[in-house]
Design a binder for these strands. Structure first.
Lengths: 346, 346
DNA sequence: TGGCGCATCCAAAGCGCTTTGGAATTGATT
DNA sequence: AATCAATTCCAAAGCGCTTTGGATGCGCCA
């Protein structure tokens, strides 16, 4: 059932039917009712390809997932972000198109998306310290919102981010207040912008208390369970072992906990752990009371926010309007993984 | 840069340029070279909307993610499946469109996808015991491949599945061979088809050894860490506690391990654990040697396979061709989580 | 009565591509 | 020299929609 058939069945022109369905004023209310009714009865849905071609709007948003040799991008937070963004898209009548491309093809993938006209805008995931995708998208004039920020980037752009620096600063202060002095940072890969911000927060908290950071306590890797485990096991076996760990993800924190228990220590008593928690739907930080003390910020909510921002930018359709931005604060929730450190008991 | 401009620049008709680019034979090889060259120089990409409209093919595959009140669908395996399928799509020139819809809107979402013409086919995720999506898709004549199977479904359809029954049967036999007699099944939700198949496998292994299944040892829930933990803690505190656990996912297995350790027991010595392992890229079962003994089957590989199958079905474009199917066998890998049970030491 | 504005509808052009049904040129065949 | 079959190209129709630029009919006022 297409417009032509529907309009013939109604004895109206395609113009009128189209206008009736799209809410234009120049059509009699009674006619509109008739049209709407017939459309519903015949289960009519306008063909999006034709509509897109005619209007120039794809009614779709792109997400490009670079498929690294490493696996960090097919990462657990991605599914939740997508779920949040997807909710917003579908209630706004937009589709979401994903492209999984190898790292090398990423730039071409963005150009293609633009040239082929498959999407009206894109969300940029996992920005690096100086991310080349931002100037690229700026050049090809494809509307975009960055999930995160890119410190090295000079041109203005729209973004939505968690205040990672502040979150880790507060988490570090929290541990310091408990009397911990040797706090290990089990960070993510530090070519990722968020990881650097987190380290900055950690360092500034230490500095404010006049504590010289120990570089042996600062690690940076892809955030897997194994990484958390290996790192914690190694650090715990050293002579002056840390009394607290600050980890960048719940998954790594699980590894840290495993190493702690394996060493015959008890988490929350002998060793404290604070982790960042993205509130992933399938990996909750405990049920009622949190297992880990955590800096919590829902990545799904971030997905919603980023999608809304992008849609509003596209709706404005003004390339000269100033970029938008939004900084989400993480909440510091106290769980069972933290307790007083050595300085407190002195 | 569109076809018209490009053809004007070349002094050729749109027809010829189009044919040159699409590899049709009725064009001089030298002309073709000229065209290809100009296309590359001007970075020409045909507008997919127009192309789709003209050809009637969307060059896109849909994945519908129902957003349950429960969270099981935004599940960790989804990201990896998508990554695998995505690889196949992009190398075949297809786009992947995701729709996140609430449970109630799922049927309408499929109808819309068909009517709006946004996709050429869909992949059905997480089939239930008697899944209504299969007859629906059959009715609306939208090509599809099911990841998994639906036992209650009578009409033929294409699917790709892991031999879940066999995998759990083998895992159970393995534990029985080790001398375990009280084996707990920490299964997924049993309205999901795969979960029922796994239980069947578990039961048939027990039966073959003449062991009466103890229903108190069989649990079924959404596969979270917390579920594994709670279940194991409860079962381990019972008078005749199980000596082995068979879990449906690595995430639940982590919870089981936590409960084991918390009870002061040692996994692999006091209590054995076998889990199913989907080989998720961010949650590996150990690095070199597996932590858990596991029935292993890459969900990413399943994504590739399902995508290939769907594309081949679409390419055949014959609605009467017989449905395809593929059954993947899981491999049983031995890790450090299993050891002899009480019957062996008697 | 003629003219004006308003409400309501329509025909047709266009979005950028593919594809049908020739047309023109060439070389080989009779 | 005339015919024929390839070869190579093109004009135009069509995919299903939106949107421009009227057309039509109506009541209303002068």
């Amino acid at each position: 059932m297409n417009l032509k058939e529907l309009s013939e069945k109604l004895g109206l022109s395609q113009t009128t039917v189209s206008r009736a369905l799209n809410g234009y004023p120049e059509v009699n209310e009674e006619t509109r009712r008739r049209v709407m009714d017939a459309a519903r009865r015949h289960n009519y849905r306008p063909n999006m390809r034709a509509k897109s071609l005619a209007t120039g709007r794809a009614m779709a948003i792109g997400h490009i997932i670079p498929l690294s040799t490493k696996h960090e991008i097919v990462n657990p937070i991605f599914a939740d972000f997508i779920a949040g963004a997807g909710e917003v898209y579908s209630s706004a009548g937009y589709d979401m198109v994903l492209s999984v491309v190898s790292d090398a093809d990423e730039a071409r993938a963005y150009r293609d998306l633009k040239a082929k006209g498959t999407v009206d805008g894109v969300i940029v995931h996992g920005p690096k310290l100086d991310d080349q995708r931002i100037p690229l998208l700026h050049d090809i004039a494809l509307p975009f919102v960055v999930h995160g920020r890119s410190t090295g980037c000079t041109i203005p752009y729209s973004w939505l981010d968690v205040n990672n620096r502040r979150a880790f600063e507060r988490a570090t202060e929290f541990l310091l207040d408990l009397g911990h002095r040797r706090i290990a940072l089990v960070n993510g890969l530090e070519y990722m912008d968020f990881a650097v911000r987190r380290r900055t927060g950690y360092l500034s908290a230490l500095e404010r208390r006049g504590i010289t950071p120990d570089h042996r306590l600062m690690r940076s890797e892809e955030m897997t369970e194994g990484y958390g485990y290996r790192t914690a096991r190694e650090l715990l076996s050293a002579p002056d072992r840390p009394t607290a760990f600050l980890t960048a993800s719940l998954i790594s924190a699980l590894g840290v906990r495993r190493a702690i228990e394996e060493a015959g220590l008890r988490m929350g008593r002998d060793v404290s752990v604070v982790t960042h928690d993205d509130e992933l739907s399938y990996l909750r930080n405990g049920e009622d009371v949190p297992i880990f003390t955590a800096t919590r910020s829902s990545v799904r909510e971030a997905g919603r926010g980023a999608a809304e921002m992008l849609l509003s930018i596209i709706a404005a359709a003004n390339p000269d309007s100033p970029p938008q931005s939004r900084l989400l604060e993480a909440t510091l929730v106290v769980g069972m993984s933290t307790g007083p450190g050595p300085a407190a008991s002195q």
